[in-house]
Design a protein around this nucleic acid. Structure first.
Lengths: 238, 238
DNA sequence: GATATCAAATTGGATGATCCAATTATCCAG
DNA sequence: CTGGATAATTGGATCATCCAATTTGATATC
């Protein structure tokens, strides 16, 4: 017998669903004015207060807009809000292997760029992150700032490209659980340090080719350990 | 004189801000129980109804949890919700050039993978997307499904990696505005078609090296046109 | 003493009447 | 036709009230 969390039923959630469905079905088009609060409340058979709770959510998600005194109407720019959310959810549900593969694609590019673009200051930051990583005892489990995440992030910052920095940020975040597992393998910590060091040295030498090889080696090692350790555990979700 | 949209002030938004600040400042820790609805409402000097509107939002964002009859408490897993949102916002504020650069990094990898992994079915889909792109007259501005987006997406799908598919999806979405601009350049449409065709041919030939070269050429062309057309317009935001 | 049981108090869920402020529609004067 | 006063409409917010689930605590039971 499996135990599942009790799901409380909230009236306003039903309302949100119904309205979202109306929009998706095309019964409501962008720009359309909605019936008044009083009418809708009566129509749904609920109180105004409950209805507004639903509208607050829809407002926040960008589906509707409210003009006090005027009325409510569907936003002209729909897709965005819902789509973006969906994309993130899809990525969160991906397998660890898929995440690692994707990361390999753009992190190889990142280290190449970093090797070319890094300023003296960037390199100092990377060095600092590397050292901080080496010093931390593996017990710091609940540390809010993960040293490994910080290390890879410091390299991404050297590209001076906001998108790349945030992509790495997102991926490291999603991979966090895995990392904690594989870090605990005896002797792995020293290996990781050397792999990291090789990447940093290549960047310092302004050698994009070496940097690329170093990161690929590192990520392949990571992937190997993950594969060995997570024959069962194949999803990032809880 | 610039005209700016009038921003209505909503009480519940203030409440959200205050509570979020309390959390960020560490005055409220994960798992802490919040005062009761009635107490808080009195404390803030607002009605229960308004307070609940704020809580509905915080609930949806995953910051708090509600146990009817029990009380409200801070979620044990905070960071996630807020952090993810922040990352997306950062990426949305990036410049077009940064977006294109990031895309180049992982789309080169994508076409390489696609050339290796694509099934016959994938290739048929890619072909269909290419043809559909060629047939559409450039007037279909408000077409919900952008043919260019669909084309690049069909290639990403051939990697059979959910993360890569969604990454491309996100980037194409963010780049949409730009694309419409550059597509209007006389003769550009035919050029794009040929660039696309070259990519498809390479994938059909199972030639990752050719595919990579083709996509790099294509993206460099795109970047060139963007650079020439958007000397002024440098942000994706509105 | 530990445990089960039941009643009372607490707490969030939801309602409906009521008032306010901004917007919109209407009508009238010029 | 325009401008402005006026009335009706609409969302914003409050308050008193009731309900259902949970929690608490006293009591009974073993």
């Amino acid at each position: 017998m499996t135990i599942k969390k009790i799901k409380y039923h909230r009236v306003y959630e039903d309302v949100i669903e119904q309205i979202e469905k109306l929009i998706l079905d095309g019964q409501l088009a962008p720009g359309d004015v909605l019936p008044t609060e009083r009418e809708l409340a009566q129509g749904f058979g609920i109180s105004r207060g409950t209805l507004r709770e639903a509208f607050r959510i829809l407002e926040r998600e960008g589906l509707i807009e409210t003009r006090p005194g005027g009325g409510r109407f569907l936003s002209r720019t729909l897709e965005k809000a819902e789509d973006r959310k969906q994309i993130l959810e899809n990525i969160e549900r991906a397998t660890i292997i898929e995440l690692l593969e994707a990361r390999e694609l753009f992190e190889t590019g990142i280290v190449e760029l970093a090797a070319v673009r890094a300023t003296e200051e960037d390199i100092a930051d990377i060095d600092a992150a590397l050292q901080r990583w080496g010093m931390v005892d593996s017990e710091s489990d609940d540390d809010p700032v993960n040293p490994d995440q910080a290390f890879h992030l410091s390299i991404a910052k050297a590209t001076h490209n906001v998108v790349l920095v945030n992509l790495i940020d997102l991926h490291m975040d999603l991979l966090r659980k895995t990392r904690q597992k594989t870090d605990e393998i005896p002797g792995r910590k020293k290996e990781i340090y050397e792999e990291h060091l090789r990447i940093v040295d290549a960047i310092k030498a302004r050698d994009p080719v070496q940097a690329k090889e170093a990161i690929i080696f590192h990520l392949h090692q990571v992937r190997g350990h993950v594969l060995r350790n997570t024959a069962v555990l194949s999803e990032t979700g809880e």
